[in-house]
Design a protein around this nucleic acid. Structure first.
Lengths: 158, 158
DNA sequence: GCTCCCCGCTTGCAGGAGCAAGCAGGCGGG
DNA sequence: CCCGCCTGCTTGCTCCTGCAAGCGGGGAGC
């Protein structure tokens, strides 16, 4: 049997927890969840002319599950996400970003500068890469990532 | 009622699946990983002189669960990982890396990172550029991609 | 001595991830 | 015509994540 006072102690603990989780909810974007990832995956898959089952196979996941993921009925774990990324030949970071579990690599990377200053490339090769980059980047308009910032750095005290 | 032939068709599908998952299991490191993250988290927490309950509160997770995570009994999701990272004031990438759901970008030159995170490029184009980069870059200068690879490249047909 | 408060850990349960199995429909060839 | 093979979707199950509640213990104040 416990003393009433001890019980009170436990209760206070719980209350503190409740308050904390409430606060956490206030600061966390969370719930929106985003079928974003699913749409993105499906888009990428279609762009690559790959069937659902094919991708499922190469990614090592079951085809029904992939189907559900693409339609936003299921929220895939990071591991599954990484495997799908591998199957799609894209970077896991991109998918994590889409899933809202990673911030955008802030600070525009400036690929051109990186290529120009890359010691592993000869000048000729730099030219080739830059030329290709120019043709691929296209850059019509510039809608570069709206920055909704899902789980980004927050202020501790406002 | 179904025709036997159709059933056979279904069966073939299942068999293919079984083979695929077997292959996946063969090439995936999988289960070993986990406790790494827990140790890392606990180390970081102790280094910061923070109690378990405190971190749990600031990270927005329950204290018992954090306890289990630190001792490797539970495998936290990426979301939880990101929250813990926030509570510890460290980057989510670091924790993902420890959890084995993100490859180390250590050896990779800046150009690769720049391309990967370039908003002006589609994922397809990134793949193209990275592929070309790989073939152009001087291999003597940098030993690229260590590839310990928990979720790394896999053969299509063994 | 005894309370009070903190520490970390254990337990039982709700809910969701992920898969095996099965289903409906479209298309080419015997 | 209908058989085989593809496409994607739905269902029922198992396993595990994540939390609320409770436990035992150690140090400070009375």
């Amino acid at each position: 049997m416990q003393n009433p006072s001890e019980i009170v102690s436990q209760v206070r603990d719980s209350v503190t927890h409740a308050a904390a989780s409430a606060a956490a909810e206030a600061t966390t974007v969370s719930t929106v969840v985003s079928s974003q990832v699913g749409d993105f995956i499906r888009t990428q898959r279609n762009a690559a002319q790959v069937s659902l089952r094919e991708l499922a196979r190469s990614a090592g996941v079951s085809n029904p599950y992939l189907s559900q993921v693409e339609r936003g009925l299921r929220k895939p774990s990071a591991e599954i996400l990484a495997q799908i990324a591998r199957g799609l030949k894209i970077s896991a970071e991109t998918l994590y970003e889409q899933a809202g579990i990673l911030d955008r690599r802030s600070g525009t990377p400036d690929t051109v500068t990186a290529i120009r200053s890359d010691p592993a490339l000869s000048e000729r090769h730099k030219a080739v890469l830059l030329d290709l980059y120019e043709s691929l980047a296209d850059s019509t308009a510039s809608p570069p990532t709206p920055q909704h910032a899902p789980l980004s750095t927050k202020e501790e005290h406002p």
